[in-house]
Design a protein around this nucleic acid. Sequence first.
DNA 1: CGCCTATTTAGAAATATTTCTAAACAGATG
DNA 2: CATCTGTTTAGAAATATTTCTAAATAGGCG
Lengths: 91, 91
Amino acid sequence: MGFAETFKALGDPVRREILVMLKFGKMSAGEIASKFDLTQASVSYHLSQLKKAELIRENKQKNFIYYELNASVFEEVMLWLSQFGGTQNEK
Amino acid sequence: MGFAETFKALGDPVRREILVMLKFGKMSAGEIASKFDLTQASVSYHLSQLKKAELIRENKQKNFIYYELNASVFEEVMLWLSQFGGTQNEK
DNA sequence: CGCCTATTTAGAAATATTTCTAAACAGATG
DNA sequence: CATCTGTTTAGAAATATTTCTAAATAGGCG
């Protein structure tokens, strides 16, 4: 799977904010970019990092590219983290 | 809390390996360093990053510094991740 | 086809991270 | 106290990441 890429992707505040935005539904690259004070090219770079980490999926329609969350990788990350006792078991 | 630091800390493979080692019990800085092909100074740097992220705690004894996991921050990270549907609910 | 519109790619500059070597520090011990 | 052991800190070099501007691509539309 590649935890390195996943955690690196999650390490950036812009990328975490993109993920939070996508919780409320899919958005096009342009819509996402408009929420940040960054060029579209920079936001495109962040989207590519999130996609590489498989935290989001893209889906082309007309000449828009829509992005949406990919819940399964979040699950895998949580599973990995749970090995450190991060649930409400012990204590 | 500071998810930026936490995820950045988790993004490095050496640091993830340190965390996995600490699952089996506390270890001194020297013991940890001996498991890597890196100088002690470099491993010390990684330990400082993990400590800054509060993923580990230190505990001095004699002239050794022992490191151990801090489960509570793992919990917070999992909680944050769960907002993205990363548990076995929906579907 | 020729041209919009939405988005990405390339390449460069700025910034941050990782690693090393050398030096410093802190506590125990002879 | 002088020194040894375990570890960190400082500073520099190597590498990676983030951002920008400018150019390229891709698909739909008149």
